[in-house]
Design a protein around this nucleic acid. Structure first.
Lengths: 255, 255
DNA sequence: GGGAGCAGCCGTACGGCGTACGGCCGGGTT
DNA sequence: AACCCGGCCGTACGCCGTACGGCTGCTCCC
């Protein structure tokens, strides 16, 4: 009866997993499995076939062990995905970039976009709870460092980063959906639209939605498809950076 | 062997469902069910308990019919969710707003935020495929109308709207995750952080991630929690609108 | 050398999901 | 009176995540 607080796996266990607090076994021939091996094959599966294809059975299979053996190292699928996410963050470059804040921030945006393109499953992975792993911390620290000294308060700096990363994620998601659609239907975006257009015209009485029709078809012609994710990313990014420039300039003037 | 194009339900069926092309039955006492009744209870369930609680069995139960009866009206769960989404769009107000484009666009952003707050499941509903229902078309048309005459090309106008709606969705998602977390764990955001902080400090050697620590705690103190979704929404919205202003002004100057 | 303990491994089983399939029923048409 | 067919739905299948308990063989201690 009592609504048992399910799936609230204790913080200690989850965090220990993320931070790899586990003394290596003293066993002569170490164990066949490890968190790292599990995470590596899980990421490979998700990269290649998407999050839906990532099942615990599948992971066990790919490792040549029984399904339940995976649970020796990982408390559950949610925690596995959390470690996958933190690991993926660890792959990102963190170079010292020459130039002003705008160049650095733009670079950060592009690096994040590339990450999502390499690991589209990250866009669908629902983490209602922040991951809080070491790689995320390092990433956050690195990205903040690029903009801490632009004359805004710490709170604003955080909001700037959130805004830019949010835009990147939106654009990446839109792009990823186009790719998914093409994989699922075996048609390109353009073909898909062409197959739907006649039906749509049947339903839409002529002249309804005049602006939507005009703008939609203008965008379609421009991009050779209904939607140009790259264009949306670029256009939006420049607008966002412009908007940030406005506050930065304001603060510099009032100093 | 042949990779059967699964789940590619024919466009005709899906679109007909969205646009409600179905002659009412000539039966004396009409059928017990209808697409509209199904959609209504499905939205109620998803609003109250989230998308996970929305199962076909549950929908049938709530309607007092067998599970499979639902399939008489709806080809599958994906299509049901699509109709739910289009229906939700139909709830949005579309007033004629006085004022300049910035006021209108800001209003659109707030209306969309309100929509997501009323129906948080829309944020999680994965529609790899655009919905293309009448309400979405009407919404798109209305929103474009607010900004068609600001001096940008049709393609740019589309990108502006995409940018703003993308920001709203990002911010709404962040806010919704906080709410989910509170519901799932029974703790407030602040309590959750306090319960994790000691563990985190154990793992993080002192002095690692200095900027992240400083900015993170500044943001935390400011918002009384780790993250201030409302603040992120407002700050980002103003930056985005500022950024759009920049291009709009440019174009006006070059005219 | 021998016994105990325990980490790693995993087979089985449970409850839940979406939904394919085929059948039943009763009103409308001819 | 015969037939048809739309609406309804019980059953069953193949997936999923994962709880539970048992096996095995290494390590440690005496």
């Amino acid at each position: 009866m009592a609504s048992e607080r399910k799936a609230t796996a204790d913080p200690a266990r989850s965090l220990a997993l993320l931070w790899r607090t586990r003394e290596p076994t003293s066993r002569s021939a170490g164990p066949a499995l490890s968190v790292d091996r599990i995470v590596r094959v899980a990421i490979d599966i998700a990269d290649a076939e998407g999050l839906d294809a990532l099942t615990m059975r599948r992971v066990g299979e790919a490792l040549g062990v029984g399904t339940m053996s995976v649970y020796t190292y990982v408390p559950g699928k949610a925690e596995l995905v959390a470690v996958m996410i933190d690991t993926a963050y660890g792959e990102m470059p963190r170079p010292a970039v020459e130039g002003d804040w705008r160049i650095r921030l733009e670079r950060i945006a592009r690096d994040n976009l590339a990450l999502y393109q390499r690991h589209p499953w990250m866009l669908r992975a629902e983490t209602t709870r922040p991951v809080l792993g070491p790689q995320l911390m390092a990433k956050y620290d690195y990205e903040l460092a690029a903009i801490v000294d632009i004359g805004l308060t710490d709170v604003e700096v955080d909001a700037v980063l959130t805004l830019v990363l949010g835009h990147v994620k939106s654009a990446a998601r839109a792009a990823s959906e186009v790719v998914d659609l093409e994989r699922e239907t075996g048609m390109t975006d353009g073909q898909w639209w062409q197959s739907h257009a006649p039906w749509l015209e049947t339903f839409m009485t002529a002249g309804a939605y005049p602006i939507a029709s005009r703008v939609g078809s203008a965008a379609g012609q421009q991009h050779g498809a209904a939607y140009g994710p790259e264009y949306a990313f670029e256009f939006g990014l420049q607008r966002v950076l412009d908007g940030i420039s406005v506050v930065v300039a304001e603060r510099a003037a009032n100093r």
